[in-house]
Amino acid sequence: MAASFPAPGAPAAPGAIFMRFTIKAAGHIIEDINYERKAVNMNEILELYLAFARIGAVNFGGGYAMLPLLEEDLAKNKGWVTREELLDYFAIGQCTPGLIALNVSTFVGNKRKGVAGALAATLGFLTCPIIIILVIAIFMKNFADIEAVQHAFAGIRVCVCVLIIQAVLRLWKKAVVDRTTLILYLVIFFLAVFGKHLFFAVPTALLVIASGVFGVFFGKGGQDK
């Protein structure tokens, strides 16, 4: 395959580089699928599926509310990912197409068991929401208007809020390592919370990409070592 591409050192258009990379990546994925067909242990895939089905069943309050659950189940109890990796996945999941929750599920599943793992994790995460909405659509369209449901979810929102804040406090040291990162944190936080009230809503994906670029130019590498 390599022969069809320009020799190393030859100038290549960005489009060509992107194409080359995409083809390579697709090749890797196909290689992995072939490899995994032999190596995959169904029990581990099932475990991954069930772990994400459990998270999907209790993931109230959107993508970010998933973080405390992932941290507890996967980072602390199972040791499948580190907390730094979770942060990285959320950052990338925020600025790539698709729902954050699904992006993060795919990431974790892939890290654990490659393509099969990614599919298992994502399908697991989808299972309960799909069933619940189907049940609601079939039997009780006024579900959200039931008084007890509203009270229950007002309570759950309080809990989700505390869980998110605690996750932020735990992860703080992993991300905000010096004065530069503190300033970056404050700027992004300010823009994300108040941006829409003061001037205009900055798309969050843009904020994330900008801070990645900022990191490339002004960052210090090697925090994981």
């Binding site: 959320f90 950052a91 991300a175 905000v176 904020l207 990645g212 900022f214």
Partner: peptide, 11 residues
């Protein structure tokens, strides 16, 4: 990632 992590926490 040095820049992405604080952004992630901020989000």
């Amino acid at each position: 990632f040095y820049g992405l992590r604080p952004a992630s926490i901020a989000m």
